[in-house]
Design a protein around this nucleic acid. Structure first.
Lengths: 176, 176
DNA sequence: AAAGATTGAGCGATCAATCTTT
DNA sequence: AAAGATTGATCGCTCAATCTTT
């Protein structure tokens, strides 16, 4: 492991003129790398289990949940995209596949006929109820069970600072 | 839960028998939704800028950085996959494209000829040096500039709790 | 002209299958 | 048989282009 260039008689071992590769100071490195690793670990597990048990991706669950929480169980496509942090095109295709499964339906928007409503069906409500129940259990297990109440509120404060209070956190509660 | 069949004279206002759609309690919702939103916002911006300025994805930067930090500037493909949190196949193709650009080279592994080394070139070192310098600046801007020193160490502690100290955080510092 | 929705093209990533070496 | 690497198939996602309505 090249334990430091101990000087002495250096062979022609030209160190390749290594232009120092910048690093983050250790404290920040833990906060940053941990953030990425925790996100990857937790979301991968949630997504895999959700797929296996309900044949839903995390994004599909998020879309269904937003619809279920909305008045009349429907939202315009573009609203879904904004709140679920997805592109319009992604939402369009996601709704295609949910529609094929009978979980949502498209409906025209009377007040503005460029708009299209996505509307959750009874079957969709039933499924998202079961899926979310399971999902929150595992969010608790994978995320919250390791944290104290104080840590949970610290995290909330950190996110508020990072996201200039443009936090799209659903009418009153949370999402997938 | 249909608020219990209160009997009495229920109007025909069938509430669709909404099987209550579960929600997270508000404090947890902020911590969880904020986590997802902050990750999406920060990584999307970093990735977009990194692509525009250096033609590198976040994952490609991570791979180059791991190689640059490693002894002799090389690591086995499977080691790269583990430390960069990517699948072996993704790393294989990522190295394909970095190799085409002359940023890394593949080399055979003398001790075990099933293995393959990915080895960073001088051009790769030069590029990753510039890219990381820029990258850390923007990680600071988008993430750390909003947080106090205390918050940074709180985050570190939270990730340590969530990732059962299986934190693959580079030899001594951090990664992309 | 601009906004909403959809479609086409292409990248990022994973899984399963294959091939080689141990 | 198992591990390491690669390839093929496929999914998730975004961007740019298109069509419709305002």
């Amino acid at each position: 492991m090249a334990a430091t260039e101990t000087a002495g008689s250096e062979p022609a071992l030209a160190p390749a003129c290594v232009n120092a590769v910048p690093r983050l100071p250790p404290g920040q490195a833990e906060a940053w790398v941990g953030f990425l690793a925790a996100h990857a670990q937790v979301t991968r597990r949630l997504d895999a289990e959700l797929n296996a048990r309900f044949d839903l991706s995390l994004s599909a669950l998020e879309v269904l949940a937003r619809l279920a929480w909305a008045d009349h169980g429907r939202l315009r496509m573009s609203t879904v995209a904004e709140t679920a942090l997805l592109s319009q095109s992604r939402v369009s295709r996601l709704v295609d596949s949910l529609e094929e499964r009978g979980l949502v339906e498209r409906a025209s928007c009377p007040s503005d006929s460029r708009g299209v409503y996505a509307s959750i069906s009874d079957a969709g409500r039933e499924l998202v109820g079961r899926a979310l129940e399971w999902h929150w259990e595992h969010v608790n297990e994978l995320f919250f069970s390791s944290l104290s109440a104080a840590q949970v509120s610290q995290l909330g404060a950190a996110w508020r600072a990072i996201l200039g209070h443009s936090v799209t956190a659903a009418p009153d509660s949370s999402a997938a």
